[in-house]
Amino acid sequence: MQYFMQLLISGLAIGAIYGLIAMGFAVIYKSTGLVNFAQGEMTMITAYIAWTISTTVSGNVFVVALGAILAAVVLGLIIERVVMRPMLGEPVFATVMVTIGLAVILRSSINFIWDAYPHGLDVGFGRSIVRIGPIGVRTGQIAVIVTLLVLLAVIWAFFRYSKIGVAMRAVAADDRTALLMGISATRVHALAWAASSVIAGIGGVFFALSYDLSPAMFQLGLKAFPATILGGLDAVLGSGLGGLLIGITENLAGGYIGSGMKEVAGFAMIIVVLMVRPFGIFGERDIERV
């Protein structure tokens, strides 16, 4: 039982990070209909900026958190304005290719701006180990699980009750009708990119806190993508939960079947789920009337 619980808690912790990044994917898809293949790289850049703040400005956790959130907003807005907005109205394939190009540029920028060495994000929090009976867990891991749960509730309320949230859903459902109703699609898109950058960036910062910061961190995006497919590409909350499911599945497979199965388990799971529900567990069925 102790073995199972240790696997479960570790799975929840890494799954919460996948979940946050997966929510970033879903926010952009829900608002713009686009899959952002640079999500992992945006996550990594925000984490590196947080590290820079912690080593140059202040190591205070609140200063680092605020700085990282602001940086993520700016990063999302710049990408939307400079890279994505000129692609409005262009074929989806071309736009997706732009995000792939963006991913390569952001990935390479790490070595140019920072370096190839791994770094630890030290904000005086997150690295200490808490013992729950015989089970050890880092405070950063507990914090990321709590943060994901809080964000799930906040985002649910945001889409359900706020004007901007409703506007985002309207643009996602039918951007032309939304435009006729006076909703600015470009503003909604900008907001979506900023929000996505912040949510995924939080995941990146927590990863750096619990693990480390390195140029390989962009690969988190590759792990989070199955989570968003599993939860539903258009389901922000579902993507968050999908992350948890992937994290737990990976860890249980790694712990009970073998190390080699760890990386495969998540993908095997989405194949099975998509065969039954092609739009993901929480995704909406896309109905086209002819």
């Binding site: 073995y3 240790q6 696997l7 570790s10 799975g11 912790a13 890494i14 990863f207 693990y211 390989a216 961190m217 690969q219 988190l220 590759l222 990976e250 860890n251 249980l252 497979a253 790694g254 712990g255 073998g258 190390s259 080699g260 760890k262 990386e263």
Partner: peptide
């Protein structure tokens, strides 16, 4: 005797197996 996939970043289950 474990074998991990290149790029793996979380080794919690692998190290737990090692401990066991």
């Amino acid at each position: 005797s474990g074998n991990y996939k290149k790029g793996q970043q979380d080794f919690s289950s692998d190290m737990l197996q090692l401990k066991e």
